[in-house]
Design a protein around this nucleic acid. Structure first.
Lengths: 321, 321
DNA sequence: CATCCATGTGTAATCGATTAACTACGGCCT
DNA sequence: AGGCCGTAGTTAATCGATTACACATGGATG
């Protein structure tokens, strides 16, 4: 910057003013400065700027698992929305691991992100509290924590799950296997509670960890126990469960009814296409980013609850008639 | 930091030494400082530190499309490797868009990343040159650019594609539809060249843009032209093509042979499972991160070329016998 | 013609760390 | 005892920006 100033025959203050679009400098001075900048290929040091202004124009996003297309899509949406407001997003991948999650959150805070979007790995509120205590705006995304005091953005699948339950019961299924998420996550618990609630006593629940492998294992157990329908509570466990169903040579929907929470682009390609509860992923990501930006600007955004929809495609068999 | 110093009755210099594990401070002083840090909940400001030391312990990763599971997996691998060396990764999503790519690269440089991993959107070398000129270490990943002067890490699919071509030809296919990537990307061109080369004159090529929609369109065109086999050059175009095949009610492999470049976890679930050329994604990501770190440490890493493998699963029909 | 004000630019403090250069202290040797 | 040295710790410069405040200039005004 000093070089630019010298080159243009002005002081660094003037250069800074030109850079930041202040009113002061003469059009003529401005020209000279811009020319010098161009000539020297100067680019301002964002670190220095942020140090001085205490604003990094950066949001932190800590997600549970980057390999889960659901979160990848969320990340994408967050990024889009943030960029359109002149913010940048730094993504941290917690890998469904509390420790790694905490590490990432702290790293992001150390780098002074202006705000944090968090998809918490568990519903333990301590990490969120720690962040809030540090005075950094936080918004929770997809999952919440116990006694959360910050805005939360998530999808409500109750209606869709109730409808799903009704159809399964109506079709005469009496042993319905539910491949649930971890009980210490809000989504894991709530989805399962709603579904089992509306299934009366017909549900049999096995908990997985939102990953493919646990989906196969859970499916195996449930099939061994004579389940005639399977519902996986997230797309990765659904993938695992489908593998198990295939491996056993079972036909959907003839031998077994099948549904998944979370839509994926390839579900319609299966034969039959898979019935799902589809979440408005992109809207969730965008809404979360908007809430966080509002919070950063001193507003108090409300919680956002978007509704998930049941998409019938054929994998439930007669239940869909 | 000043507060900590005061609290511990020492100067900021001493606090800094404790923080950075210098030899100087007495165990006793160290104790006091650590106690003060603990008590005040002090966390060093990474911006200030980086400004002073000109090192951010951060790598930039600009990928073509975060929604493409291939790149998501790469990102994940890069991040793992980087973390294990004490580095953090900032991901930028270029969306297969040159302008956005350039914007991201500049943003990352402005933030003074220690090095940059780039999956270039096109093979135009100007952006890479710009970065190199700025003295920032760069490594290219998956794709290269014309006349690249920096290390490149990628997968070589020649062998697998040749084998694939041999089988298709052997099975008597004479109209083989190739859904190619954009000709201005190295992977788009090379894969297609190898495949069409080994297919003699039997190949018919339609170029897509590495996205789902273009895959359906290309497939439609090729099927209209009477193709009896389809090969998609990346998983998203494969997804689109499969959709088109399904929509037309064609049976794989009976009506049409099908193969995709890039494996995906759900390919084995289709009926029949899809034959693919599988790239060693994780190894690519890790290798690229390692190369970049080496470059940052002043070494001159060689290019890395990993080999992709043909995985036969049944979607080629008699070609696989 | 002196005074005042507006306007454009420069000077220097500041953000929060690191680190070279210096000081103070105590022990050891002759 | 005096000189020397090693060591723990302090002072202050520095990284590259922003910005409050001071200053200079020129035109308008009484």
């Amino acid at each position: 910057m000093k070089d630019v100033a010298q080159h243009a025959g002005v002081s660094t203050a003037t250069v800074s003013r030109v850079l930041n679009g202040h009113a002061a400098p003469t059009p003529e001075t401005r020209e000279r400065v811009l020319a010098a900048i161009e000539e020297l290929g100067y680019r301002p040091n964002a670190l220095a700027r942020s140090l001085r202004t205490t604003s990094t124009q950066t949001l932190g996003l800590v997600i549970s698992d980057l390999l889960n297309p659901f979160f990848a899509e969320i990340a994408r949406a967050v990024e889009d929305e943030a960029r359109s407001h002149g913010y940048c997003v730094v993504i941290g991948n917690a890998d469904e691991n509390t420790e790694q999650e905490a590490t990432y959150v702290r790293t992001l805070l150390d780098r002074r992100v202006d705000g944090l979007l968090l998809c918490p790995a568990t519903d333990d509120p301590s990490l969120v509290r720690e962040v809030s205590a540090g005075g950094v705006p936080v918004v929770l995304l997809d999952r919440t924590v116990r006694g959360a005091t910050c805005p939360v953005v998530r999808a409500d699948g109750s209606e869709a799950l109730t409808a799903l339950a009704r159809r399964l019961v109506g079709a005469g299924h009496t042993r319905i296997g539910v491949i649930a998420g971890p009980p210490n996550t809000s989504t894991g618990r709530e989805r399962t509670d709603v579904l089992t609630g509306s299934l009366g006593g017909l549900a049999q629940v096995v908990h997985g960890d939102f990953r493919q492998e646990s989906g196969s294992q859970a499916a195996a157990k449930l099939l061994d126990d004579g389940a005639t329908a399977l519902v996986a509570m997230d797309n990765l466990m659904g993938l695992g469960a489908l593998g198990e169903v295939r491996a056993r040579g079972l036909q959907i929907p003839h031998d077994i009814a099948f549904a998944v929470f979370d839509d994926q682009p390839w579900f319609p390609l299966l034969d039959p296409p898979i019935t799902v509860v589809a979440q408005p992923t992109v809207e969730m990501g965008r809404a979360a980013a908007r809430s966080l930006l509002a919070l950063i600007n001193g507003q108090q955004p409300d919680d956002v609850k978007l509704t998930a929809k049941l998409v019938l495609r054929g994998s439930l068999g007669e239940a869909e008639l």
